[in-house]
Every structure is written in structure tokens, then in C-alpha cells.
Design a protein around this nucleic acid. Structure first.
Length: 876
RNA sequence: GGGCGCGUAGCUCAGCGGUAGAGCACUGCCUCGACACGGCAGGGGUCACAGGUUCAAUCCCUGUCGCGCCCACCA
């Protein structure tokens, strides 16, 4: 809208201002705005708008992520609806189709971000599959390859049989599954006895190449070095000693299937065991690699049965195998067994460890500088405790499998000649040169893990590998704002890649926020049906209300529990602000450049200016400390309580005087403070503040976003103004409390008498008579000398006693009860203080000022008790 | 199994060594010229439990109980 047209979101690489850079965590192109986005982008926008007002040259870099698997899934679903598939149309057509889909639907989330008010520098929007970013990806890949940090290896990976692709450790999540533990008898060669092994996965036994027992376990000592016959297959497999075998678990002997289990793979390597795969890429049984070892052994192995398994899925094969073992009387026992089974986080399919050739990144080498950067505080986490999480993962990092058997993504820049020799290069032409002219090359079919390109985001978006002015100016970025759920996926990868490629950290601060949950604290999920759509909340309550709610509810390290009710509630605040501004407008409160708030003379002016100074200080300090909740609460309280409930109420009688000097001053001060308020609130509540800014004449339309962040105003004798207003506020409070508790009808204007009041306070009462009349509904305030009128209510205010004479309206017993309650409270307090002060240890060991403070408090309370007792005596 | 976080008013949470706080909800009063998405007043808490340190503990330490999360783990 207007801001964007005015270029208010744009960074200015040519400016002399200090840059402030934030990289958006690029949302998936497939995405639409959810509450998690609303949270993270609101927090970022608050920081960004605040810094922009502070005069920084802000770059908030927008963009989106190609999100390999997620996007491929979406488009594959579309194809399925059209009765076709990616395999049917082929790779090239499929990729063209994804681009087409992106062109049509990829802009959804950016439109929604605009509705939230996100002040991103839109013309600089990037996409991870853009030509420039793809160039960066290829260059980093080639460089890391040449440095030996990227390599091909044949090893066990987490294989997702649904996507038929490798996935990284991070994309695997455990799910508890109720299954069985089958105890299977493996006959010992040449003997008439068995060794029993327990397994939850009998279908993998076809790939067993050993049985391991613990070297110190006496039960098996005589069997080490001998052979067992693998049931169903008839293969001889050795019985080996390996400490991996845990005598406590299962039967104490464990079957070793190196091609289908990570631990078994390690055992297989230690003992140079064969590693036949017996499951294919779709997790169906395949006998190809064990063909030669299939042998007929009567009563133990029947090749005919094995043939029936070929091509069967894991589950059916498992059932068939268990039945066959039972038929052969090789099943010793079956137990039910609950255990954790790894599943693909996106597909939901059970993950199959599979022996394949993949590309790996030596993350351990890249992790070291990342760890050091945080240890040396070049990058700091907020809240700090997340550093532990970061360290723990990086210190024990495993090789990162970066190849994916997908089509949508950055294709791996590696080419093979007909003999399988690999040529890694930034372009096919370069690979060709390396291979020699005329050699037929085919490019690697695989694409890179999406997070490989996301990890380059902080510099690839700025033009790297070109040495652009933006890169020099905006890297390293200032703060990264994101959720704890992607510390490993993204934050750690950016740290590793940024340090390696750029030689410097990608960001100085990582601000980690929580997750958005529903009002009962449940994680939002489609299946639970508790998802709240931020756009719906924006429609109902406005983006400002949603943003302010998010700000107010985001504690450090805590999840945000958010329901429509809390947003509705905060909308009241936005409305309150609007109404307060409307009141100002109606009272001719207009910004006046010629008015200097420092020249204000009235205590009321000095008091609100001083309060505003504190609000500015506190709000700014809160933002600096990433305490967005404190920032919101400070301004909520200042606006509602100080500005509306007290200042504007005090101002009303002044305005009623007409165009006096006092009224002119208060108008000027009010305009100044409202302007401060609009500026302070703008980062959280941009739309309404901007509209008011324009409407009340503070500046040009869309001018607030670039208005300077407020600083302190010189206020003379602030202390005196504070003391004065504090007394008046308490006086009004006491009168109101008495009236409410004694049920004095509002229509009754009560006279207020002050007994024993100091001349100073009597003078104050005179100066503030109009507001006191209005706000306390007092007829007048005067000194009481001599006898108290019968049937009066009383209250103690410092040295004075308030007397409200209301014959016939005061219930004597109620008044006694009220004063008695006040006295009891004061007496309890005094007792506590006396006990404390009677303690010699306290007096001698506590700091002198603390002791003094307690003495003063006690003196004050004792005086109050005396006055309350006097008041009680007077009632009779 | 290892680690992190959290148990404070009915609810959601702040405070984290020296007088227990906020918002919402609740109760009473109020159509008072910005605002009922409002105003005024009020009730409500042995700060999970048990020890310890300290003159002083909601706050620091140790343990217990309860809740949540992360990592590892397919015998």
C-alpha cells in the first residue's frame, strides 16, 4: 500500500546510516500464512520498524524457499488429480510444471505478509532457485568438493520408501509403535541345538550375515567362531564376539543385518561382513543380492518359500516369514513389544536404513568454527540457554547426507563419464573440459537437500559470489529471528556455511522465540482441528490487534498460547488508543512545531512529560533486550493508565477554562506526548498509529514509519511534579475508595475535609480543586479544625486525615469495620517490621540503607495506625 | 538413557535475594460530553513439596513430585 509505494520499506545502500539487517526465514513457496509465521514476522517487523525509526539503514530481506520435498509433493498431487504423474510426464516437463505452479501460487504468502504489515524490502525479494542463488549453490558445492568436505560415499542412510529418497538424520522422527519381539531359533551348524536371537524385524533376517554375542558372556563362549544356519535362506553365518551385543537385551545374542540397521552396519564393518540388501528402494523384498547363498536345508530353509517373498512389502513379508518360522518350529517365542520406530517427518512412512551411494558433507569440520563463534560470543543466542542445544548438536554432528532422489531442487553439479568417473564443476561445459572433448557425460540425477541452499541465504541473497556493495554493507546481518525447531536445520547450517564461505558469522544475534499453541497449550495441527488462521484474526480484529497480542504474549523461551479471545482483548487497546486520539482531536490538540515541551511550567505537564520519558526509556530498553512483551506492557500501561486515566482526566478541567495560557500549554504537551506515544507504538501497531499520525497532522501520510524514535525531553523539577501529582492521585483514590465502600451515590457531591494537613498539602488541594471535584466527585476540599461532624467517613493520607461528613449516608458500623480492616492490615505490617528490626543479626548484617528503609517504613505505618485509631475513636 | 525448560491469584503469565504483580475472568457501583472494546472501587496467593545457604529465600543450592520439549535408542 502507501508505505510500499513511498519506498518506506527500502534499504538505502548509499546512505551514511549504520545498516541494520535481518534476513527473513524464507517461507516455503507452497505455504500460506500460519500463526507461526504471524509470530516470527511480527517480532521481526517490530525490531525492523524500531531500528528504522532510530535512523538505521534497514534491510529486511524477503524471499521464499523452493522447499524440495514439500513443493514436489504439492505438484505431484496436482498431477495425480489430472490422472498423470511425474514419471509419466518426465523430469523436464515436471520441473516446468513446478515453475508454472510457482508463478501462479507462489505469491500467496507474500500477499499475506503485506496484510500483516511486514515491512520487507519487497523489490529485493529472492527465491532459492533463482539463477543467482543457484550459482551460489553450485559454487559452494564445487568449492567444498575441492576442499574434500563434500564427498560421495556408499553407506547406510535414512531412506524414505514413500519418497524413495534419502533424508537427513534431522528429517527423521521417532514414533512409538506397538509391535512384537520374535525369538527365532538359528540352528548351529553340525549340532542338534539352536542359538536364539530376538528381533522386531524378522523380514530383514534374509540379510543376516552374522550372529553377535558378547565376548564376556559365558553362555556363548563355546560358540564363538562357529557357524549358524540362517533359517529360510540356508546360508552359513558366523557367530562372532562383539561388545555391541548386550547380554541384558533380548536373548543376549543378536542377529547382524549390516545393510538394514545402523548398529549392525558398524558391526559389519568391524568384522568385514558381507552386506547384502534384501529390501529395495520401495522397501520390498529383493533376493538379488542373496541369490547365491540360497540353499535348501530340510526343515530349515525352503527356496520355494523364499521365491514367494520376492517383491512383497515389509509388512506382508514379515507376516509370511513369522508364519513360515512357526511352521518350521523355529519360532521360540513371541512377545508384544513397544518401541520407537523412525518415521519420515514429511511422508510419515517408516524409515528404512538402506545402503546406497550418496553425497555427504563433512559437517564435523564445518561445525568447529561455528562452535567457536558462539563460544567467543561473536554470535549470541537470546535466550542464552539455546546455546547449549546448539553446542550439543554440533559437537556430536554426523556426516550430512545432502543428496536427495527428487526432481525439484538444485541438481547436483556432478557429471559422470561412461566409466563412472566423476567430474564436479560449476557448469557442464567446465565438466566437459575436465573430462576431455568428446567424452559423453551424464549429470548426477539427484538434487541437493533444501537446507543446503537455505544455509547460504544470508549471503546468497546479497549477490554472492559477486562482490556486490550490498554484500559488503549488509553481511554479517544483525539479528536472526526464528523458532527453536529449526536451530539445527537452519541456524546451525547458516553458521557453518557462512563462516566457511564468508569467513564471518552470518548474524550477531540469534533471537529464538517459542511456538504458537492454541489457548489450551496444544500444538496447532490440522488433524486436531485447532488451527487458528491469522488472516481470519486479521479480518475480525485487525492486523494491529493481532500484532499487539503477539508482542504482549511473547515471553523469552516460552510458547505463545493464543486464542481469538486474547486478540479480541488486545483490540480494546487499539480502540482505546484511537478514542484517546479522537478526544485530543476534539479538544484542538494539534502538533505544534513551535511548542517546546521543555518550556512547560505546570506540574501536570512536567509530570506527564516525565512519565513519557520513563516510558521511552523502558520501551527502548525492552526492545534492546528483545523483551517485546515488556515493550508492549510498558506502553499499554503508560497509554491506558498514565495518559488516558490520569493525564487526560486532569486536563479536562484545564481545557474547560477556554483559551488560557495553561490550556495552551497542556494542549501542546498533550500533542507532544501523543506524538511520542504514536511513535513508540508504531512498531507494534503500525496501521492505526500511521493513520492517526496523518489525521492529527503530525506529518505526511506514511510519514510515521520514518519518523524519528523518541528520546527524552528535558523536564525541570520533575521530582516536585511527581510528588505533587502523586499526592493528588492518592487523595482522589482515597476519596473514591471511601465513596465506593460506603455506597455513597455518585450523584452526591461530598465535601472533603482535611484534618492536620500540612500547609503544603492544603495548598495542593487548592491548586487541584477542579480535578478533585470532577474525579472524586467532591463538593469542595477544606481544612477541618475542631470537632468532626457526626457521621463522617475517614481515611488516612500521610500526615492528614480525610474526613467526609455525610450525615445519614454513613453507616456507623460499616465505617468502623472499614477503618478496622485498614488498621488490622497496618498493625500486621508493623508487627512484621518490628520483629525484623528487633533481630540484632538483621540490624548488624543487613546493608545500612535496608535497615534505614525498614525503620522509616515502620515509623510511617505507626503514624498511620495512630491516625486510624484516632479516627475510630471519633466515630462513637 | 542424556539434556533443557516449566510448576506464582480461577485462567494466561511477569517478577527471580530485602513491603507478592499484570492482563483476563469475578463482585459491587456508574448511560459523568473520547471510549460500555468504557469508568471507579473491590475480593482473591502458606509463590508445587522437603531440606540447606543467608540477618533475610517466590528468587540461590540439593533432593522429591508433577508437566512439557529436545537428543539417542527398531534385540
Amino acid at each position: 500500500d502507501g508505505w510500499e509505494r513511498a519506498g518506506a520499506f527500502a534499504c538505502d545502500p548509499g546512505s551514511a546510516a549504520t545498516p541494520f539487517t535481518v534476513m527473513i526465514p524464507p517461507p516455503n513457496v507452497t505455504g500460506s500464512l500460519h500463526m507461526g509465521h504471524a509470530l516470527t514476522f511480527t517480532l521481526q517487523d517490530v525490531l525492523v520498524r524500531w531500528r528504522r525509526m532510530e535512523g538505521r539503514d534497514v534491510l529486511w530481506q524477503p524471499g521464499s524457499d523452493h522447499a524440495g520435498i514439500a513443493t514436489q509433493m504439492v505438484v505431484e498431487r496436482l498431477l495425480a488429480e489430472e490422472q498423470t504423474s511425474r514419471q509419466a510426464i518426465g523430469r523436464e516437463a515436471f520441473i516446468a510444471r513446478v515453475w508454472q505452479w510457482k508463478a501462479e501460487s507462489g505469491g500467496t504468502i507474500t500477499r499475506q505478509l503485506r496484510r500483516l504489515g511486514a515491512s520487507l524490502d519487497w523489490p529485493r525479494e529472492r527465491f532459492t532457485m533463482d539463477e543467482g542463488l543457484s550459482t551460489a549453490v553450485r559454487k559452494v558445492f564445487v568449492d567444498l568438493y575441492e576442499q574434500g568436505l563434500i564427498y560421495r560415499d556408499r553407506r547406510l542412510v535414512n531412506w524414505d520408501p514413500k519418497f524413495q529418497s534419502a533424508i537427513s538424520d534431522l528429517e527423521v522422527e521417532s514414533q512409538e509403535v506397538r509391535g512384537h519381539l520374535w525369538h527365532i531359533r538359528y540352528p548351529i551348524e553340525g549340532e542338534n541345538r539352536f542359538i536364539v536371537v530376538a528381533t522386531t524385524r524378522p523380514e530383514t533376517m534374509l540379510g543376516d550375515t552374522a550372529i553377535a554375542v558378547h565376548p564376556d558372556d559365558p553362555r556363548w563362549r563355546d560358540l564363538i567362531g562357529r557357524f549358524a544356519i540362517l533359517p529360510l535362506v540356508g546360508r552359513r553365518i558366523p557367530i562372532i564376539a562383539d561388545a555391541y551385543s548386550d547380554p541384558e537385551k533380548g536373548s543376549g545374542a543378536v542377529k547382524i543385518t549390516p545393510a538394514h540397521d545402523f548398529n549392525d552396519f558398524a558391526v559389519g564393518q568391524r568384522h568385514s561382513l558381507p552386506m547384502p540388501s534384501v529390501l529395495d528402494r520401495a522397501a520390498r523384498v529383493t533376493l538379488t543380492e542373496i541369490e547365491e547363498s540360497i540353499t535348501l536345508v530340510n526343515g530349515i530353509a525352503d527356496p520355494g518359500f523364499l521365491r514367494t517373498l520376492e517383491g512383497q512389502g515389509r509388512e506382508t513379508a514379515r507376516t509370511a516369514i513369522v508364519a513360515e518360522l512357526a511352521r518350521l518350529d523355529l519360532l521360540e517365542a513371541t512377545e508384544t513389544h513397544t518401541h520407537q520406530v523412525p518415521h519420515g517427518d514429511r511422508s510419515g512412512a517408516a524409515i528404512e536404513p538402506l545402503l546406497t551411494t550418496q553425497w555427504f558433507c563433512n559437517a564435523a569440520v564445518l561445525a568447529k568454527p561455528a562452535i567457536e563463534a558462539v563460544e567467543s560470543r561473536r554470535t549470541e543466542f537470546v535466550p542464552k540457554q539455546w546455546e547449549n542445544t546448539f553446542f550439543a548438536w554440533l559437537r556430536d554432528i554426523q556426516p550430512w547426507c545432502i543428496s536427495r532422489q527428487l526432481w525439484w531442487g538444485h541438481r547436483i553439479p556432478a557429471w559422470y563419464d561412461p566409466d563412472g568417473a566423476v567430474f564436479v564443476a560449476r557448469t557442464e561445459a567446465e565438466a566437459q573440459r575436465a573430462a576431455g572433448a568428446g567424452v559423453a557425460l551424464t549429470q548426477d540425477e539427484d538434487v541437493l537437500d533444501t537446507w543446503f541452499s537455505s544455509g547460504l541465504w544470508p549471503f546468497s541473497t546479497l549477490g554472492w559470489p559477486e562482490r556486490t556493495p550490498e554484500l559488503a554493507r549488509y553481511y554479517p546481518t544483525d539479528v536472526l529471528v526464528t523458532g527453536f525447531d529449526i536451530i539445527f536445520f537452519w541456524v546451525a547450517r547458516m553458521m557453518m556455511q557462512g563462516l566457511h564461505v564468508m569467513g564471518d558469522v552470518p548474524f550477531r544475534t540469534v533471537y529464538i522465540h517459542g511456538l504458537v499453541r492454541d489457548e489450551r497449550g496444544q500444538k496447532m495441527s490440522k488433524s486436531k482441528g485447532n488451527v487458528i488462521d491469522p488472516l481470519e484474526l486479521i479480518d475480525r480484529f485487525g492486523a494491529d490487534a493481532l500484532r499487539f497480542t503477539i508482542c504482549a504474549m511473547t515471553g523469552p523461551g516460552r510458547d505463545v498460547k493464543l486464542g481469538a479471545a486474547s486478540v479480541e482483548n488486545r483490540r480494546s487497546f487499539v480502540t482505546k488508543l484511537w478514542n484517546a486520539a479522537r478526544f485530543c482531536e476534539m479538544n484542538a490538540i494539534r502538533p505544534d512545531q513551535g511548542f517546546d515541551p521543555a518550556s512547560a511550567k505546570l506540574p501536570l505537564s512536567r509530570w506527564i512529560l516525565d512519565s513519557a520519558n520513563r516510558a521511552v526509556d523502558e520501551a527502548t530498553a525492552a526492545l534492546e533486550a528483545y523483551r517485546i512483551d515488556d515493550y508492549a506492557h510498558t506502553l499499554y500501561h503508560f497509554t491506558w493508565s498514565n495518559f488516558c486515566d490520569w493525564f487526560l482526566e486532569f486536563a479536562k478541567p484545564v481545557f474547560a477554562e477556554g483559551d488560557t495560557a495553561a490550556a495552551r500549554e497542556v494542549r501542546g504537551v498533550a500533542a507532544h506526548v501523543l506524538g511520542t506515544l504514536l511513535r513508540l507504538l508504531h512498531p507494534a501497531i503500525p496501521f492505526v498509529t500511521e493513520e492517526l499520525w496523518d489525521r492529527l497532522g503530525y506529518g505526511a501520510p506514511c510519514g510515521l514509519i520514518r519518523a524519528p524514535w523518541p528520546g527524552p525531553v528535558a523536564v525541570s523539577e520533575a521530582e516536585a511534579a511527581r510528588a505533587e501529582l502523586d499526592w493528588v492521585v492518592r487523595l482522589i483514590g482515597e476519596v473514591r475508595a471511601v465513596r465506593a465502600e460506603m455506597n455513597i451515590p455518585p450523584a452526591v457531591l461530598a465535601p472533603v475535609l482535611l484534618r492536620d494537613a500540612s500547609p503544603e498539602n492544603m495548598a495542593r488541594a487548592g491548586r487541584w480543586i477542579e480535578p478533585i471535584r470532577r474525579m472524586a466527585r467532591a463538593a469542595n476540599v477544606s481544612a477541618l479544625e475542631g470537632e468532626m461532624p457526626k457521621g463522617s467517613a475517614q481515611a488516612v493520607l500521610d500526615e492528614a486525615t480525610l474526613v467526609i461528613p455525610l450525615v445519614g449516608l454513613i453507616d456507623v458500623r460499616a465505617e468502623q469495620a472499614r477503618l478496622g480492616k485498614d488498621r488490622a492490615k497496618a498493625v500486621g505490617e508493623a508487627d512484621k517490621l518490628r520483629r525484623k528490626l528487633a533481630n540484632e543479626d538483621f540490624v548488624s548484617r543487613a546493608p545500612a540503607e535496608v535497615v534505614e528503609e525498614n525503620r522509616e517504613r515502620l515509623a510511617g505505618i505507626e503514624a498511620e495506625i495512630a491516625r486510624l485509631e484516632a479516627a475510630l475513636r471519633r466515630i462513637e
